[in-house]
Design a protein around this nucleic acid. Structure first.
Lengths: 339, 339
DNA sequence: CTGAAAGCGCTTACAG
DNA sequence: CTGAAAGCGCTTACAG
């Protein structure tokens, strides 16, 4: 690495352009006060010197660091990853940078990374929280007066003042279950998701409401939200619940695992045994058979979250306490098989 | 959001603890100069006031912001995502935060996000570059004297002074091809990857070297590195190259797509038609049939990259110009079928 | 439209 | 071991 000398500052630029540093600062802020001619002189000086703006210094006076914190419980899951990516790209497009951290569902790690982000002076935080842990994280954000949005998972918490947004999971559960019934399923199971967690409860409640209305018995097999669990369930369903002819999976990971498991045991999916996933990750369309799934438009949700937060920051528009975005069902071969 | 008053500063802490702000600063830096008793007084004052360290301010004097930039060409690919996550988590564990940006293979976006990171005062950058574009990004990093590591993809560039590290792709290509031969394959194709790109060339060169040594004819079908492309190739191979009985895919995305495609057209994989992937993403083990793949230990590579960069930053240990980490072949049913 | 001065919250020599 | 002073690179009133 070339050991460059000190980076040029606005003082250097001012000197080179023959103006005061205040003027340079105004140019930096695109102030209309500066005469066009002066502005171009200053810009030229900056270009000549290879000047780069020092946001940390600016922030010291003016507060807005242009850094946004993004804390996610499980970035390995493509659903969350896609959310994070589209959010980050939307922030970048508006001139903000994203500090991103994966907490691996660990509340202690979460507390630590949030603390670090506060120290770094993030202007806002977007949090898809780990379950468990106390309210410490929220209290810290509260004390630091950092605008914070909860997304995707609503924490039990009594903690108010943290607007929440997520896709309408309950409606998704309803759509999927209704679809399975429409396809002729007689016995529908709900597979995956851990009990007591808000997302599970919401997705489940949609499923239950539809079955209730028709006085049908539910069958709930909760478990990890992983491919591995889905795969195990293929065998279990065949062995222990042979009458089940429709499955609503907690998410696509479980569903894709279930498809793998069915391939493994040679059970055909799509006609006598229908499977629906949830999230509609990219892979759902590319699996074989292609997976029917509840589409949450997670990419759109990511970028709209960015807009919401920046509107809050820049224009003081406080988000609604709770926002639910619409979901749709994308029907593919796994539940409407022609294979 | 409660509109908290001004955040407490070291001056407030100093006043409360009855010491000077210099002393508070020393406590913050864990200086051994401060008497234990004083230290605890100061710490208590901090706790009482809910003091949080302002890194931006500190950075203004001392340079090390504790922010590391991570610029990735395609975060949607689980291989890169896994790399980014494990790198970020290793940085967090050592007290650094990661500013992460996806460039979607767009050199212009890349230039923009790197510029933004420089403004934010990142202490180092880790870059898995987009192909194409000029050397502007490297020049900017150079001018700003920001230690920068290139990873995973070596840019053609004449640009030196940017240490590079990646798994040993060439060796991976060799291992995979040798394995296919050992399994009895007579005609082996290389599928996926765009020509002229360094990663493709390296993986390909391993494949070619093995075939050359046995005077066998290569068959190269380059293309996008996506599931979709892999899926298309299933049909094409069956139709146009029925004699191909072994396939080395550019990466797991292509390979998983190929498996899907084979399922779709009812071609059995593992015995007469063997498939090997590259990267060994998590899903490889869970597909059906399970996918043989070149394991790059990308999680380990991510955390060791973090160590390397922090050693550079903290201890001035400049990384080697080029590092290649070992790879292994994980043999599964897709190439050694018992199905 | 532009400049001189103070201040943002820290760290860093330098005294003591 | 601790304090007073200067300074990091900006922005922000305030004059002019």
């Amino acid at each position: 690495m070339p050991r460059a000398a000190r980076r040029p500052t606005i003082v250097d630029v001012a000197q080179k352009a023959g103006v005061s540093k205040s003027t340079v600062s105004l140019v930096l802020q695109q102030s209309p006060l500066v005469r066009a001619e002066t502005r171009t002189q200053v810009r030229e000086a900056m270009a000549d010197l290879g000047y780069v703006y020092n946001r940390a210094a600016a922030n010291l006076r003016s507060a807005n660091a242009g850094l946004i914190g993004l804390v996610i419980n499980d970035l390995r899951n493509p659903f969350f990853a896609q959310f994070a990516i589209s959010l980050q790209m939307a922030l970048s497009a508006r001139g903000y940078a994203a500090v991103i951290a994966n907490t691996d569902e660990d509340p202690n790690l979460q507390a630590q990374v949030v603390e670090a982000m506060i120290e770094h002076g993030v202007s806002a935080v977007i949090l898809s929280s780990a379950y468990g842990g106390d309210d410490g994280v929220f209290e810290a954000l509260n004390r630091a007066a950092i605008p914070t949005m909860q997304v995707l998972r609503k924490m039990a918490g009594q903690i108010t003042g943290f607007p929440f947004a997520s896709p309408d999971y309950r409606e998704g559960g309803r759509l999927a279950t209704t679809h399975l019934l429409d396809q002729g399923a007689k016995k529908i199971a709900f597979v995956g998701g851990l009990e007591g967690r808000s997302v599970t409860e919401e997705r489940l409640s949609g499923y239950l409401s539809v079955l209730d209305a028709r006085a049908m018995e539910p069958l709930i097999l909760t478990g990890r939200s992983s491919r591995g669990f889905g795969r195990e369930m293929a065998r279990k369903l065949e062995d222990d619940y042979p009458d089940v002819d429709g499955v609503l999976c907690f998410n696509d990971q479980v569903a894709l695992g279930l498809l793998s498991g069915c391939a493994e045991i040679g059970r055909r999916v799509g006609t006598d045994f229908k499977v629906v996933g949830f999230d509609d990750v990219e892979e759902a369309a590319e699996a074989w058979p292609a997976l029917t799934s509840v589409h949450c438009d997670i990419a759109g949700f990511g970028s709209s979250t960015a807009e919401t937060v920046l509107d809050w920051l820049e224009n003081g528009m406080v988000p609604k306490t709770e926002t639910r975005t619409p979901v749709t069902l994308i029907v593919r071969d796994s539940s409407a098989g022609t294979n």
